[in-house]
């Protein structure tokens, strides 16, 4: 466990229970200034509950939580003043304009009017919505609303930005635009905590991440470290006709460290995919197609959070 010295967020045995249901079961983590920290996990793993506790929107059941060194039980307002929160579902004021949304939100943080006005124009430019500033929020696309929500979370110049599934439900173009903006925030030194169940998102944006499953942290590290620790360097994916697959009967044994038979394909986890493929040919196994790819966080994720494996 890294020391909590100088950490912006520090949790020890952090627990959240709703009556008899345990959403977060005693987790430890630290987020350092300037870090992009991710919670990766399937739905229901406890990511959102953790984020809500950090955002001081949900009381801690037990354990320790410090944000900027302060206790959310006593200093919620002072902590919130320095947070920027992007919730999972947009909660903009749909009846008013994009610019009004941002200016109004700045008032909740007591940002002086003149400062807010300049900041709002900057942020509109940052999320590329200057030309829609005067339009109401209601008719905007999902991607645009998300960008408004992100801009709104930045009006108080937060020391820590919390993003709960920032790109869930968006089309690829919208998603890439948001990634690009978040990457810029990160490059400019912002501290970001995000949750996601998209591996590519975690790989793109996180310096360090924890994988959560069933209310617990099951792995921690940088995307690279996790891939090295939990999966092989490469994955050979084979597509086989159903009858060949049914009659495989151990013919792939010994070709890889781990073999995973999926409904539509077989994955061979190995350090050298090309060599394994050569052996497949040598053994005379007829295949429909083959693909050698680098292992990704997705492989780590599935390895850790489940899918029955054939080892």
């Amino acid at each position: 466990m890294p020391s909590s010295e100088g950490a912006l967020v520090s949790a020890r045995r952090l627990t959240k229970r709703f009556e008899s249901f345990t959403a977060v079961g005693g987790i430890d983590f630290d987020v350092q200034p300037g870090e992009a920290f991710g919670f990766l996990g399937p739905n229901g793993a406890g990511k959102t509950s953790t984020m809500r506790m950090i955002g001081c929107a949900s009381p801690v059941t037990s354990g320790e939580l410090r944000i900027f060194g302060m206790d959310p039980r006593r200093d919620a307002s002072r902590i919130k003043a320095k947070l920027g929160v992007v919730p999972q579902l947009d909660n903009l004021d749909a009846e008013i304009t994009v610019r009004e949304n941002l200016e109004m939100y700045a008032r909740y943080f007591d940002v002086p009017k003149a400062v807010a006005r300049a900041r709002v124009e900057e942020l509109l430019d940052f999320v590329q919505l200057t030309d829609r500033a005067g339009s109401k929020v209601e008719p905007l696309s999902g991607g645009m609303k998300r960008r408004v929500t992100i801009a709104r979370a930045l009006v108080n110049n937060p020391d820590l930005i919390l993003l709960d599934e920032p790109t869930t439900g968006l089309d690829p173009q919208a998603r890439h635009l948001i990634w690009e903006r978040l990457y810029r925030l990160k490059r400019d030194g912002a501290t970001v905590i995000l949750t996601t169940h998209y591996m590519d998102e975690a790989e793109q944006l996180c310096d360090r991440l924890v994988v959560m499953d069933k209310a617990a942290i099951v792995a921690e590290g940088s995307p690279r470290q996790l891939i090295e620790r939990y999966v092989t360097k490469e994955v050979l994916e084979l597509r086989l006709s159903p009858d060949i697959r049914a009659s495989l009967d151990g013919r792939l044994d010994g070709l890889a460290e781990r073999i995973e038979v999926l409904p539509d394909r077989v994955q061979l986890h190995t350090a050298d995919g090309e060599r394994a493929l050569e052996h497949v040919y040598t053994r005379g196994i007829p295949i429909e197609s083959a693909l050698v790819r680098r292992a990704s966080l997705e492989d780590v994720f599935l390895r850790l959070t489940g899918r029955t494996l054939v080892e």
Binding site: K80, V85, P87, Y105, Y108
Partner: peptide, 8 residues
């Protein structure tokens, strides 16, 4: 929820 994420 949006308001409560701020010092309000």
């Amino acid at each position: 929820e949006a308001m409560f994420a701020t010092p309000v």
